Amino acid sequence: MPHKLMRIHRAEPLRPAMLAIAGDSAAGKTTVTRGLTEALGADRSTSVCVDDYHRYDRAERCGLPFTPLHPACNHVQIMEQHLQLLAMGQPVLKPVYDHRDGSLVRPRLVEPRDLVIVEGLLPLHTKLARACFDVTVYLDPPEPVRHAWKIARDTERRGYTREQVLAELARREADSSAFVRPQQREADIVVRFEPAGGGAGVPLSVTLLLRPTVRHPNFARILSGATSSAAHLTLMRDSDGTPVDALHIHGNADPLEADVVAKAIWHDLGVPEPLPGCLGRMPDGSRNEPLRITQLILLHHLIRAGVWRIPGE
Rank of each mutant, 00 (worst) to 15 (best):
S228K: 10
Q184E: 14
L223D: 00
L209C: 06
G201R: 04
V214W: 11
S228T: 13
A174G: 04
A187I: 02
L233T: 02
I189F: 00
A167W: 04
T234V: 15
T242C: 14
D240L: 10
V214G: 10
S177Y: 09
E156T: 15
S177I: 13
L247F: 09
G198D: 05
I249H: 00
G159C: 12
P203C: 07
P212C: 06
G251C: 10
H248G: 01
L204D: 03
R185N: 07
A187V: 03
S205L: 05
E156I: 10
L235S: 10
A196M: 09
A230Q: 03
Q184V: 11
R237V: 01
H248V: 12
H248T: 10
E173P: 02
D238E: 07
D175E: 08
D188C: 08
T227K: 15
G241I: 00
P182E: 04
D154M: 10
T155E: 09
R192D: 02
E173V: 11
I249M: 06
R157E: 15
H232T: 08
F219S: 01
P243V: 08
L169T: 00
D175L: 12
T234R: 13
T207W: 12
P212V: 04
A196Q: 13
R192A: 14
Q183C: 06
E186N: 05
A226M: 09
T207S: 14
L210W: 01
E168G: 06
R172Q: 08
S224K: 14
S239Q: 11
R153C: 06
P203G: 02
G159H: 12
R192F: 06
V244W: 01
Q164A: 13
Q184S: 14
V214Y: 09
I189R: 00
L223E: 01
G199H: 11
A196H: 09
L209I: 04
R192K: 14
P195N: 06
H232C: 13
D175Y: 06
L209H: 01
N218D: 15
G225S: 13
D154S: 05
G198A: 10
A178V: 05
R185E: 09
R237I: 00
R171V: 06
Y160T: 04
G198M: 11
L169G: 00
R221G: 05
A196Y: 07
P243A: 12
R157Y: 15
V244C: 14
E168K: 11
E173C: 12
